[in-house]
Write a protein that binds this DNA or RNA. Sequence first.
DNA 1: GCCGTTTTCGGCCCGACTGTTTTCAGTCG
Length: 572
Amino acid sequence: MTNSEISKILYEMAALYEMDGVQFKPRAYEKAALGVEALDQEVKEIHQKGGIKALEEIPGVGKGIAFHIEQILKRGSFAEYERLKKKTPIKISELTAVEGVGPKMVKILWQKLKVRNLADLEKAARAGKVRGLEHFGEKSEEKILKGIEFLKKSGGRAVLGFVFPEIRNLKKMIKNFPEVDDAVMCGSARRMKETIGDIDILATSFRPEKVMERFLGLPFIAHVYGHGPTKTNVRLKNGLDADLRVVPRESFGAAVNYFTGSKDHNIALREIAIKKGMKLNEYGLFRGKKIIAGRTEEELYKALGLRYIEPEMRENLGEIELARQNKLPELIGYGDLKGDLQVQTDWTDGENSIEEMAKAAMEAGLEYIAITDHTRSLAMTGGADEKKILRQMTEIDRINRSGKFKKFKILKGAEVNIMKDGSLDIDDKTLVRLDVVGAAVHSHFNLSREEQTQRLIRAMENPNVDIIFHLTGRIINKRAPIDVDIDEVIKAAKRIGTILEIDAFPDRLDIKDEYIQKCVEAGVKMSIDSDAHSVQHFKMLEFGVAQARRGWATKNDIINAWPLEKMRIFLK
DNA sequence: GCCGTTTTCGGCCCGACTGTTTTCAGTCG
């Protein structure tokens, strides 16, 4: 039983109780499901190590649900779940995945039409049976069919870095509407999450209806889910959903805060407001009818007794407590990188020459880069052997000496391949001559956790290895991460002095934010690299910095935010 | 069912929009 299987059952319990109109239990099960989902460790392991008591430590899990989870681990189910499933033998999560269909609708559909799953629902709606039900009509039937259609088409969440330019563009267009004072990107895009489910944009205007009219008139809107005077919800032609909300200027800060989330962070803020005898909503912070704060986010946090919290940290994972104690870390800034330690060129699978990459990096505001082409065992990329590396080193020396790039410095490096047993595919007497050696896994993704962990640690123990590139090898929405014991790897990195990379490429973002936070805690240094394969790719560094900020990293944690000399001394 | 600056009982975030019905429950974020 994996964590996601367990949380799925808990979510289902929430929906089943919701169907029956049970109070509060649905929220409790949802919270527990979220708690399980967010875990870094397998519930199974937690239970093996600490039994039922350890399960109660999971956020949102108390005595009752801990017992249920134990039962799930032992026999895949528990009594109350079976009882409810027997009463309503339907695929509830499949049905509620349809936009606009919730537990209460599912209940009626089941009782009146014996709808058990998505196929049943589609059949019933197509046959025109849904419109005859009480509280349903033609429109709800149509909406259900459209919802099913969308569900079949949509591929889940989009990789932020790939759609970011489109979001910025949309925001800009809205900001340019004559009736709009200001418009900002909110939601998970503002928190710079790896992936986003939809686009949230907030605008201020005294003529919201007019703004909505213009928004609906944009050429790339495919479908309108709903629209009112202050809120409109659409599907764009690129397949993404977008929400536009308009508020008056005096509520801007409160609305930005509400619309940015995360939901958990917002709920925690509202609870603080309640405890202080106030009320927080998207229009402001109120005591009675009197508005206390709301124009800016800064004054809102201040009125709640908190320091301003950067959007990337707003996940209710301890940041609020730090803000209360004035102990928030000073996050690395978006302009803080001075170098890039993973760059590919046309010597292997990159598109541009060393000089072109250097020029582009310099224009992106960097002071140094390391050229790290692939090595020989990656035959498909034309990986370099020792001879080719030596030739490239000579070439880099020549360019550095030419004075063409003034103070800008090109470092000699390689992305060497970690073999199945943890050995490297380039000999040590060549590696020792390089400025930056990154080692990476490109094959044997399916070894056991034990083997994979030992393999990585063996590579790290090679004294010539400076950095582990894209440690887990995951590709978001495409390839699962390798199975490693991250705590063991971080412990080894601390002992050996290995740097762990944050690969900034939008569908890698490897290592992920939780692991970054672990590195920060352990004092393990990291680098943020673009993994650029063309001159266009240096702009991806932004997403690497975002990932680092989401992991609460400061400038001190990231070696290529340091000046060249300091960084080089550290590498040695 | 969970949880504690309200602390072992009594609360549990808040508001916009929709569709159907005619005052509001359901859904969503």
